[in-house]
């Protein structure tokens, strides 16, 4: 099957330091792919490369390709803004904007020129329902998003990313700042979302990877050491390095 998102020989330098050393990775459509590995192995860097967040940092130099439906997002003259609309991102710390709940969800649609009130309302309701937040906030849509709890904020951020209907959703340790109950709700949400979207998630939590991911990639010092179906990677790792990491010998 043709991959939805394909990373091809991707190198990334911060100044003189090489952080990603020729990454190859295929992300199949409607799958959840987890990136695991010790701190500093480059998994978040790789994730951020997938929607060109490194453009913000003049120190970072990217070489190689990332193909979205066979179309290189790093091709010269490529419209970054359009790329980021198709590839959404949820960050490690919930980052709602200091606006109302409604305006947070509608933000991406509004900047894209959607001003029809009724349509916006319909989309806000639909995305909030799909992120299981609707029942909790339906009477408070005008309240500041900053008044929500951490777990609610993160689900709001996921809803916000989903509202613009991206094709791929990138999640950078989305549960690292949350309690176990909120984490469980978000994992549930991810499994629901993968029916429509393709998801790449960076996680430090091995159990989480096993619970949600179809495929898991183990990264170490800027390289993908092993990439396999999750069950296989955890139960019978092919590489010694992977086995060592999973048994807790380092990391």
């Amino acid at each position: 099957m043709k991959p939805k998102l394909a990373v091809r020989n991707l190198h990334l330098h911060y100044g003189t330091k090489e952080v990603l050393k020729g990454i190859d990775l295929d992300v199949p459509e409607n799958n959840i792919v987890a990136l695991i590995g010790p701190s500093g192995c480059g998994k978040s860097t790789l994730l951020r490369a997938m929607n060109r967040m490194h453009d913000l940092n003049p120190e970072a130099k990217v070489k190689g390709k990332i193909l979205l439906d066979d179309d290189d997002i790093y091709a010269p003259g490529k419209d970054v803004v359009a790329v980021r609309r198709k590839i959404g991102m949820v960050f490690q710390k919930p980052n709602p904007f200091p606006k109302s709940i409604f305006d947070n969800i509608a933000y991406g649609l509004k900047i894209a020129g959607e001003n029809n009130k009724q349509k916006l309302h319909a989309i806000v309701e639909r995305t909030l329902r799909s992120s299981y937040l609707w029942e909790e906030v339906k009477d408070d849509l005008d309240k500041s998003a900053l008044s929500l709890s951490g777990g609610q904020q993160q689900r709001l951020c996921i809803a916000r990313a989903v509202a613009v209907e991206p094709e791929v959703l990138l999640m950078d340790e989305p549960c690292s700042a949350l309690d176990p109950i909120s984490t469980a709700r978000i994992e549930e949400l991810m499994l629901e979302l993968k029916k429509q979207y393709t998801i790449v998630i960076v996680t430090h939590n091995m159990q989480q990877a096993q619970r949600v991911a179809d495929l898991t990639a183990f990264m170490y010092f800027g390289e993908v050491i092993e990439f396999a179906p999750t069950r296989q990677l955890f139960d019978a790792p092919q590489m010694e390095l992977t086995a060592n990491y999973l048994s807790g010998n380092f990391g």
Binding site: F91, F97, I111, V164
Partner: peptide, 9 residues
């Protein structure tokens, strides 16, 4: 970052 990730210029 949040705004850019949603496709803002």
């Amino acid at each position: 970052e949040g705004a850019l990730a949603l496709g803002a210029t």
